[in-house]
Design a protein around this nucleic acid. Sequence first.
DNA 1: GATGAATGAGTATTCATTCAT
DNA 2: CATGAATGAATACTCATTCAT
Lengths: 200, 200, 200, 200
Amino acid sequence: MGAKVARDNRRTRLLNAAREVFSQKGFHAATVDDITKAAGVARGTFYLYFAEKPAIFYELMQSFFELVTDAGLAISQDVDTKEAYFIRVQEGARRLAHLFRDNRDLVRLAYRESMGMDERLERMVRNFYRRLAEVEAQNIRLGVSLGLLRDDLDPMLVAYAHVGMMERVFLQWQFDRSFPPVSDLEIQLVQLAYFGLKKQ
Amino acid sequence: MGAKVARDNRRTRLLNAAREVFSQKGFHAATVDDITKAAGVARGTFYLYFAEKPAIFYELMQSFFELVTDAGLAISQDVDTKEAYFIRVQEGARRLAHLFRDNRDLVRLAYRESMGMDERLERMVRNFYRRLAEVEAQNIRLGVSLGLLRDDLDPMLVAYAHVGMMERVFLQWQFDRSFPPVSDLEIQLVQLAYFGLKKQ
Amino acid sequence: MGAKVARDNRRTRLLNAAREVFSQKGFHAATVDDITKAAGVARGTFYLYFAEKPAIFYELMQSFFELVTDAGLAISQDVDTKEAYFIRVQEGARRLAHLFRDNRDLVRLAYRESMGMDERLERMVRNFYRRLAEVEAQNIRLGVSLGLLRDDLDPMLVAYAHVGMMERVFLQWQFDRSFPPVSDLEIQLVQLAYFGLKKQ
Amino acid sequence: MGAKVARDNRRTRLLNAAREVFSQKGFHAATVDDITKAAGVARGTFYLYFAEKPAIFYELMQSFFELVTDAGLAISQDVDTKEAYFIRVQEGARRLAHLFRDNRDLVRLAYRESMGMDERLERMVRNFYRRLAEVEAQNIRLGVSLGLLRDDLDPMLVAYAHVGMMERVFLQWQFDRSFPPVSDLEIQLVQLAYFGLKKQ
DNA sequence: GATGAATGAGTATTCATTCAT
DNA sequence: CATGAATGAATACTCATTCAT
């Protein structure tokens, strides 16, 4: 079992190293050598665990996608009252904010080259957004059925809008130093999404 | 002036060729040779008009950024009533929708590798978003001063949220075949932004 | 002795696997991994029986060389009449034909890269040809002393000529589908070598 | 035209360099860098004239094949008497001997790895031998029709036999230092082929 | 201005061999 | 004896950029 542990160690070390290296230099500028050096293993070892350079990148991306999707999935789980729903939505927004804050490397990497690599990655990204929107659309349908949300807008369209506002705001919040220093970011966002911008 | 025209022709042909080639193959996979061949000029000619391969890419990106920013700027121009404001906002949304629809190549290219190239491009992208958000924040402030919009949310934060929802929705609408077929896309979006999602 | 048998089994299995793998993919394209996998042993095991990849190849080549040389040696053994000599020569030719037919893998491998590997192999090949020619030259000298063959040609030169005609004909016969379908191949060859091509 | 000359120069220099380098180190051991260094051009220049490393090797092989085939073709040209035929055969043998002597590099290279590279080269080699045999078979048929040669042996079989004896003898003569020092090599060979080995 | 031949730096991947278990 | 995870040297090929014509 020692071997198994060592094996997992190597794989994990490569993944961590790759996350850091990719995040700093970008996919293209980062060499396999950079990654193995950062992981403290020999060059050839990389290919024992990943078929090719893109493979490790896909895996990192996928793990980010799952973090985000899981946050979305958690919202509707075991919810059956308006009050519980609203709390869950608020918690979901906070969880997402924390996720962006706590995984800077992964976030940076995901938004740095979530596109432009190859057809396969582009498909992964498209699928991620679709799936995420479907999850959010389900959340919205629950809100509608609870009598909380309006039913005259297409749930998928609204879902994409929510995904977009969350990602752009959290992204800017994380990486743009000039972003307004709001402490209750996710609260304002939920307010905006719920009440809209019109004067009451 | 014939020379000037020829010169401009070459430059323009290179830009058009680059837009197409980059859009199809991506920045890294596209070679200078691809571009010059598509433009029908010799390889060396490229370097008479652009200092290096990234330069022509920056210029294309910049032109996209300006298209978008101009659409945002047009909203508040010469507006002084609630009614005019609302019409302009609606027009702005439509203009943006058309812009995404009519410039597929440019949009694809911009979102395909708006990141992950180099530090300079990343700065360009960050600046674009900041400037765009400032423009939208100005629009919002006008709406507030006209007594139309609430004043308890940070305008920049709301601006980023609007940018995010627009870009994600229009992007998906353009490139995801499974996007819900809504004809009044930009109307629903403005509705959502103005009234929010809560049941009236 | 069980261990000895097992040991021999592994070694033999490696040799057989190598013969097949080399014959199909060629020396360079064949990997040690291919061979050990085909033999059903672990990679490290290879190096318990062979010092390096070329070693197993040398051994296969050597075994082919010995098969051929033995066929040549058999001709002159215990021969003391013209009639016996002629019969033996004919038998030798047939034995060689069978040898090429029954060891396609080995033949293919030997002629596929009997050269171009390294200095040592080239020396092996040169030595093989020299030794084979010496054996055949001895046969010829016996024929001369029996009063059957002319004595005005250099025996070594004639020996090389015989080696060449045999190898080229048998090789083509084995691997070129367009080779004329002659059933008495080795008889015609001996005829040609003995009587020459001139019209009687 | 200066450019054209320079271009040809580079190409020719690469071919000459490749012949030497391949001949010394073998195809696999020789690197593209070795060749370009020997030719005095930059690495990338190689790929302006040859699509890949094997391409230049194929071209060298082909040129050798043509030298040999041409020697065979010359024999039967404009011959219509027994005397002329015999002279031409003798000349052909000498021409071949000279060819092997004067193109050591090419010969060495051709026989060093005329096999074992890839499917395409193997096909080239097979085709070369078939074509060469066909040429020699034609020569033999002419000898038969002139009443000089026997007609009871398959011409293609005899042709392959001749090819084999020539190549093996000339090869050994060139590269084996222990080869018997015969001055009239090609004369003895023709004698052997014509009269055979039997005592008159 | 325009050309395109020449340059040479840069990198993913393979695979023979070792050695700790 | 046997294993197979780990090693790291080695190499063809691409392509942005230059510069002589």
